[in-house]
Design a protein around this nucleic acid. Structure first.
Lengths: 204, 204, 204, 204
DNA sequence: AATGAATGAGTATTCATTCAT
DNA sequence: AATGAATGAATACTCATTCAT
């Protein structure tokens, strides 16, 4: 999923990264030993330390400022362009695109996202770059979109941040429910209802 | 916070539990050593193993079926009685009570909840007893309440589960935003808006 | 040889110390592994780290200020009392006692002395406590002795430090020659000649 | 300092040797890693092993028979010619030349001498070639010199080995004191006194 | 000759667990 | 019930050495 294809990265190096991501996601950082990673990546244990000075460095290379600056923006900007800067006939149409996009993103990046939740979420020092990224790449476009539909009279005259909060909360709740709590649900139907509900609360 | 006061539990035993909860929440289960717990609890290392066969047992005693059966129901039933089985003039009134109750619960049980998210959330085998508990103690009362207000014409004719989902999602989103993302918000004001939004989407 | 018999020290602890001294002396600190020490001491490797936080701590416990303050003074004072504060009819008699005492000391403490030469001699930061000890416990008595024999007219009117230097140099040279370079020598005869030589150079 | 200029030796090879000598002297053989040497020499790690099969070989090339046979004799013979085979008006004059020569030698070859003391001194198997060299290149000339001055009546009728021993011991003691123990001393003055002392003990 | 990525045996250290007291 | 010394397996990491280029 994540590949630093720009920087030439050796095949073994890539195998180490893949193995680490998979195991950190599955068992957590602290419960994964470097020898397990080496075994799964089919390299010698020493090879890991040729590429990363410490085990923590390996985690950071997956999860840290480096990714925030090099990898995440890739996703972030793509998301921003494809979703937030799109041309939508209605807020509902935007919501649908937004929800599907994030749902796919979640499904396709589950391992890294799990690592994030486990290792980053509770360590405030890691959060800053992401907050920054969000404020720069997401927030302004999201706001603009909301203002646009407020002007068109589709949305209530609430502060855009509040509308955004309810939007994100409701969509995230729908996606997470489908993914983790009630997998048997029909996502499309569920989403339709959620959008209906959302618009009910946000309509003028 | 958690005290198994029914079962007589020695003071040292309680200190071990408290220390373990605090450290597991702070550093995670795998990164906390039994010697650290012993030091913080001011007992000898061996003492921990008098009470719990293994370190994992100690975690389970905090987080697992044992708690699901002995501790959580205490909370669950209290919550069910105090909140779900209350007598409310309107769904809005219920929402307000519900939100404050859960907000206080979160603030007062932050450590255990953190342990839950880190150690339980991703391990499906731990989840069953909680699902069971939820289905038995929460779901029926919640449903009843929703049906009651649907009959009174306050709420749309959606499946009660769906209404519950939106309710929980919106309230949870508001609480988590206040607690972790935007601590500077005025919770009361934020909650008012959320309830307005919710009712907008759920009203007939 | 060295036993901290005052502080109760467990038998295993003592075995670790003995093994460490022997192996550090034989192979040097850096070339001795903790697993070798554990094997020779017939304890588990972990046991070493119960008594010493790190391998370096183990070295320091043999060689450091602690020993300088607790062990060395034992020797130093014994030496000072037995040798330097003795009542001698002549400087020659003193020289003989001094030489034999140091010769025995060397033979009986060879391992620790080897560790000293290898690990301490070139690390100035370790030297201070010994310099201090020497200045406090040895220097004044040695000086007094020399002054005493200068007054009696047995020794030249050189600065006592200079006389001390030649004395130590000559006796040390004799002892080291016997111990390391020409083991076949007859120490007694060799010492007689050295004393004759010394007195020849120091006599008025 | 040491250059095997006779054998053509590449510049990188020389840099490896220099780096190894410096680091072995500073940190000891066992505590110096080949990667450190490579970094300091600014060559690739593999390059060291092109020139020396093992790390130990590298040490030996600095310290062993190879040097004893190729390098040391260079020094030894120079010393022998320049100092021992000189033409001196008195033993005192010889002593002065001898002392200055060795003092300079020590100062200029401190690193290698440190390696010697740390790695060779306690390993008897390394000592033989040096003993041999000493017996062949130094001893006879030293003896001759002493016999010469005994004939002239300047020195006592002691065995020349004994006189040599006292001479070396006293001069070495003076040099080492100046270099390692009391750097603030005035070497010239100190040496004068030592010679006076020596002659006092060795004069007829 | 020179490189540097790769190796895997070895290192110091940690840690859950046991057990005699 | 409580202790804490002792254990030994496991851990992250290092390092001399190899080898394809």
């Amino acid at each position: 999923m994540i590949d630093k294809s720009k920087k030439q990265i050796s095949e073994k190096h890539q195998r180490i990264l893949d193995a680490a991501i998979e195991m950190f996601a599955e068992k957590g950082y602290a419960s994964t030993s470097t020898s397990e990673i080496a075994k799964k990546a089919e390299v010698a244990e020493g090879t890991i330390f040729r590429h990363y000075k410490t085990k923590k460095d390996l985690l950071l290379s997956i999860v840290s400022p480096t990714i925030a600056t090099f990898i995440a923006p890739h996703f972030t900007k793509a998301f921003s362009k494809e979703v937030l800067q799109g041309d939508y006939a209605s807020y509902e149409e935007f919501l649908r695109t937004f929800a599907y996009n994030r749902y796919e993103f979640l499904k396709q990046n589950l391992p890294i996202i799990k690592i994030f939740v486990q290792e980053v979420a509770f360590h405030e020092e890691f959060q800053k770059p992401y907050v920054k990224l969000f404020k720069k790449e997401i927030l302004p476009y999201f706001k603009k979109m909301i203002l646009h539909f407020q002007e068109k009279g589709e949305l209530k005259q609430l502060p855009p941040e509040t509308i955004m909060r309810f939007t994100v909360t409701t969509i995230a709740g729908t996606i997470l429910t489908k993914q983790f709590i009630a997998k048997e649900l029909d996502f499309e139907k569920e989403l339709d209802e959620a959008i209906l509900f959302l618009m009910g609360g946000l309509k003028q």
